[in-house]
Amino acid sequence: MLARSESNYAITLAIRSEAEQVSLLCEALHALCLYASGSVECALAVQQAAAEAINNVVEHAYHNQPDNEIIVGWCQEERQIRVDILDEGLSMARLPKPVLPDFEAESSRGWWIINASVDKYFYQTICDTFAGPVLHPGGMGTDFKDLENIPHTNILTLLKRF
């Protein structure tokens, strides 16, 4: 994991897209949030949401292919923590509505957990020439054609107040 701090209130962390690396990043985020907020609940909630979001990136954006990079920007804005999760993998056309699936379903609880853990989250895909719309949970989707072929960055932003 790589870390670079821009100021007293911001730091950028980077890992390879492997499931084994996610814990390192999540523990680091937990410690940062605990340092900033002094609240165990806040730190756990951010870690919970970030773990789900980064798992999604590893699994769906990069299809479990290692050797891709996941960059996480953490910063404290007054009484709020902001976590930006950046990847260059497959983009989401819309941010799913956070609904709890039936018990039978083994997966797809991630967005529910993210929604319950942070105050706000949104998603955007940007590339050199243009920025896609900001997508909100359960909101309107977007239709990107052939985005895989153009270099682009997906950003999921999590906001948590303390």
Partner: peptide, 11 residues
Amino acid sequence: LDDFGLPQRAE
């Protein structure tokens, strides 16, 4: 109504 049939304020 969004994709889930939930009402939303339109843009």
